[in-house]
Amino acid sequence: MVPNEIFDNYLPVALLTIIGFVFVGISLFMSRMVRPSNKTDEKLSTYECAEAPIGDARIHFNIQYYMVVLVFLIFDVVILFLYPWAVRFKDIGALGFFEMLIFIEVMIIGLAYAWRKEALEWLQ
């Protein structure tokens, strides 16, 4: 009966996704019916505190957190592995705990390494 139950449980999720999109669409459409539209070149220019914008925003620049994102990706996957373990934690007993302790240990060493290599610093 599991597949049926999944369907029952996730039906509201699917419907709410559709409702959400439709709601935003309808509100934007309603507003289009009512609002004025008087576009001028100044209005359509990029907002830069009333100055004429200098250059384009899409240039090469240091996004600073590239290394942080790499570390994040690894950690996120590791954390995902921790969830099923946590759900079954009370059943698997001490052995399961110490096995996972090794896993977390590796994670801590990884964090310490990233820290030591200054991957977590904002100013690179």
Partner: peptide, 13 residues
């Protein structure tokens, strides 16, 4: 108020 506000999409966007 917000429904009645003009919708601006910047030319460069």
């Amino acid at each position: 108020k917000l429904i009645g506000k003009e919708d601006i999409v910047p030319a460069k966007a």
